[in-house]
Design a binder for these strands. Structure first.
Lengths: 144, 144
DNA sequence: TAAATATAGTTATCATGATAACTATATTTA
DNA sequence: TAAATATAGTTATCATGATAACTATATTTA
């Protein structure tokens, strides 16, 4: 992520960005602040999840299946299209979630390549247990 | 980072955060947006750096040394204290930068444990070559 | 309809983040 | 001042991100 603890001052930034417009300077300062803030958020959230034997990615996989209207399973490639991670990373995360029995994978009848991924009862329970704490955690990280 | 392409709608969020105040809901929506934005920024920036045989971390190490007033070297632990990464990660990044001859490491006379890390001429040149593109890149990512 | 191309998913491998446990030296305390 | 503690940095190992190259199946095109 973005690891600089102390963001450059306005003066420092000016030294490096003399060639840019005020608008661009402003948006760069904002970008640095956004990256720094997000880094701290992501860290805090990952700490929360790892205490629950999850990760942000695993959680997002569960959420994406859960929030899909009118269906209770998604194809792996549909999950992939909703999340911005590479396919191998998704394959690995799904494997772990299946091994942990939070998800179940079923072959599709019409397309033999595809896999239907669904929440198990345990997965749904896990998600609902972890959700309130997730939002509380974010909320408390934001108010720091 | 944060990989959800489509952030939850207000309604969706409401479904999951019934127990929270409007203020908290708002800050959660903001947190998700910040994490998503930062993820895209960091990706774009990393792409820029890897085309230049650098990384965001390596770049920040160079910057932190360069921007230090009145000194042209920092101890490794001083770099560590300015950047929010673990020590082993810093050790490894410094090793690579030294191998690439962008940094030089000198033993300290009074404290035999410590290492003084300085930019080489090549390192200073590299930094000044890469800096304008860095800010241009951020600026263009921000306006997307 | 056979050959070419596209799609679904996996395996192998690498890069870069982390923690735990370590060596060596410096500093503090009993 | 010897023993205990703190500090500087490294090594070993793991987790999780990426890309390249792959198998198997489905779809399109010549």
């Amino acid at each position: 992520m973005f690891f600089l603890k102390e963001l450059p001052t306005r003066a420092m930034l000016n030294k490096y960005t003399g060639h840019l417009s005020d608008n661009e300077k402003y948006s760069i300062a904002e970008a640095l602040a956004v990256m720094r803030k997000a880094s701290l958020l992501v860290r805090g959230i990952d700490t929360y999840f790892s205490a629950n034997d999850l990760s942000q990615l695993k959680f997002l996989i569960l959420i994406v299946i859960d929030r899909e209207p009118d269906r209770d399973s998604l194809y792996a490639h549909e999950i992939a299209s909703r999340l911005d991670v590479s396919r191998p990373v998704l394959t690995r995360a799904l494997k772990k979630l299946i091994a942990d029995e939070l998800l179940i994978s079923n072959d599709d009848e019409t397309d033999k390549r595809a896999k239907r991924i669904a929440l198990t009862k345990k997965g749904a329970t896990c998600l609902s247990q972890v959700l309130p704490g997730y939002f509380d955690k974010i909320s408390s990280l934001m108010s720091e």
